[in-house]
């Protein structure tokens, strides 16, 4: 593909997804656009790129194809074990009247994290309880992937028990698609964590903020952790990535958080010396 075509595409991808393709990766771009070009009846990638600039549907498909991202299901295992063994039972014990859980996958990427939680909820959430998972990402292309809920064979091999594969997915061509009941539990929303506020996102019982803070500078990272505190229930749990710590926080931010060890996982919880607010009938009436 010509240099001009490559730069056009790279700029488009950067704008939509914040993913940077530098010139050394032009072969990757070409490889991923090739089947789309063929399907669209174009004789060359350059011709296809011209089509992409004027056709919104093709543009969407092209961005989709260029943001393939392989991550694992139940990544690192321990956080999901902590969820099932400790976080879920503890949250449930404090919500016996309302019987609802809100969960936020705060940098959801292609959705394996959100759907992994959905699978565990299907297995462990008792009848009479409801749960909602909000999956947000700065990349609209990723959000589309989450909405579609389709994964390649290679992605399906990564950390997903075979019994869950057959229970929660159906095959579509070379891909596997998550079944509707689980797809319906996950709501996607565009959100840039670096924004100064997250209007309307709501309050959550459990937030996963895994392996994303590393992409931000210190001030932004601190801002995100302040905002997370605002959107987490007083008895809620925040999980970061396995190798992420929150050392070197400014004292006032540090004071907002307690750290609790759950097995091999460290959870952050809003620092509080008072017990969780009891649920009153007045609150329920207004809820």
């Amino acid at each position: 593909m010509g240099q001009e075509s490559f730069q056009l595409i790279a700029a488009m991808v950067l704008r939509e997804t914040s993913i940077i393709y530098d010139e050394r990766k032009d072969y990757l771009v070409e490889a991923r656009l090739h089947p789309l070009a063929t399907q669209a009846g174009c004789a060359s990638i350059d011709e296809y790129v011209r089509l992409v600039t004027i056709n919104a549907e093709e543009r969407r498909k092209a961005i989709d194809a260029l943001t393939i991202n392989e991550t694992s299901w139940f990544r690192d295992n321990a956080p999901y074990q902590a969820f099932t063994e400790t976080i879920l039972p503890t949250l449930m014990a404090n919500r016996t009247t309302r019987r609802h859980l809100s969960i936020w996958s705060a940098a959801c990427s292609s959705g394996q994290e959100a759907y992994s939680i959905a699978m565990l909820l299907d297995q462990h959430l008792p009848a009479g309880w409801t749960a909602e998972i909000v999956a947000t990402d700065v990349s609209t292309a990723m959000l589309t992937r989450v909405q579609k809920g389709r994964y390649s064979q290679v992605e399906m091999n990564r950390g997903l028990p075979a019994t869950s594969l057959v229970k929660y997915f159906t095959r579509v061509g070379t891909e596997f698609e998550i079944i509707a009941p689980l797809r319906e539990k996950v709501r996607t929303r565009h959100l840039n964590l670096a924004d100064p506020a997250y209007p309307g996102i709501g309050t959550f019982d459990f937030i996963l903020l895994r392996n994303v803070l590393i992409y931000f500078d210190q001030p932004t990272k601190h801002g995100i952790l302040r905002r997370m505190h605002q959107h987490l229930a007083p008895d809620g749990y925040l999980l970061l990535g396995s190798s992420e710590t929150t050392l070197d926080l400014p004292p006032d931010l540090n004071a907002l958080w307690d750290r609790e060890q759950l097995g091999r996982v460290q959870a952050h919880r809003p620092a509080t010396s008072t017990p969780p607010r009891p649920i009153t009938t007045a609150a329920l009436a207004g809820a």
Partner: peptide
């Protein structure tokens, strides 16, 4: 088989 599927299969075999 769809052209896209043949490419996907070959790419996955190759990169794996």
């Amino acid at each position: 088989p769809e052209a896209a599927d043949v490419q996907a299969v070959t790419e996955q075999v190759w990169s794996s």
